[in-house]
Design a protein around this nucleic acid. Sequence first.
DNA 1: GTCTCTGCAAACCGTTTGCAACGCA
DNA 2: TGCGTTGCAAACGGTTTGCAGAGAC
Lengths: 140, 140
Amino acid sequence: MISGDMAIKILKKKNIRLTPQRLELINILSQGNKHWTAEELYHILNERMPSVSITTIYNNINLFCELDIVKEIQFGEGLSKYEWKKKDHYHIVCKLCGDMVDVWYPTLKEVEAVAESISKYKIRSHNLQFYGVCSQCEKQ
Amino acid sequence: MISGDMAIKILKKKNIRLTPQRLELINILSQGNKHWTAEELYHILNERMPSVSITTIYNNINLFCELDIVKEIQFGEGLSKYEWKKKDHYHIVCKLCGDMVDVWYPTLKEVEAVAESISKYKIRSHNLQFYGVCSQCEKQ
DNA sequence: GTCTCTGCAAACCGTTTGCAACGCA
DNA sequence: TGCGTTGCAAACGGTTTGCAGAGAC
């Protein structure tokens, strides 16, 4: 888990400009241990910086994903959330409200190995989500 | 794994009309042990039935999914494929061409149990895909 | 001063919706 | 004959693209 300052050093080293939008996004992402949609990040940033556009959010989270400081979580139906990069883990998603929590289960490396051995594929990664109903939604 | 004839009986029992489009779709899906996009099904059906529309494909695969005779496979970036319903299994997806093969690994029920025990979620299902490169694409 | 980045508008793409005409039962 | 289904066109929603002007360094 890297700090916001570390992320800024990575940008500087690559001669990527430190625009206010970029710095504020890093600030939001690196502080809260959460999962955001692009839209949510847009609204948070918009409060502090009313002129920001959704395009800038996408430009920058895509950049951060390439730099490996942010991770995209695709959880079905074309929906994505983004989280600050940390140790590998899985996610539980609430089918009703979309809320998401981390599951720190050991990475399924041996299942990957099995899948590779029984197929003609070179396996590079896997994607696992759990779907259910959170306690909030269950009450209602 | 049910037969096409079985599927037709299910439709009849529910008073769902046996239109030529519907019967031909069942025919395609139940015979080939494959994974199709809606677009692919549209093109196959279109050769035999030139007036068919993509709307009808979606209408019917969605109906078949509700009837539990077809399964939707969501594999990231909003892309879906569909397969004739069979015993639970996972999929390996080629990152380059989108080709997909089955993995008959035991269902991860104990991982679901772990995820449920460490969270406040009632877990109902999970979704696991492997991503890699198929042997065809590897050659190139 | 240069060249990357921003923000607007428009495009994209797979899928869904509204609806009038069609055709299965 | 009646009502479920089809197929067209338009809408949808999250994301990307093109581009002129802004601004980081």
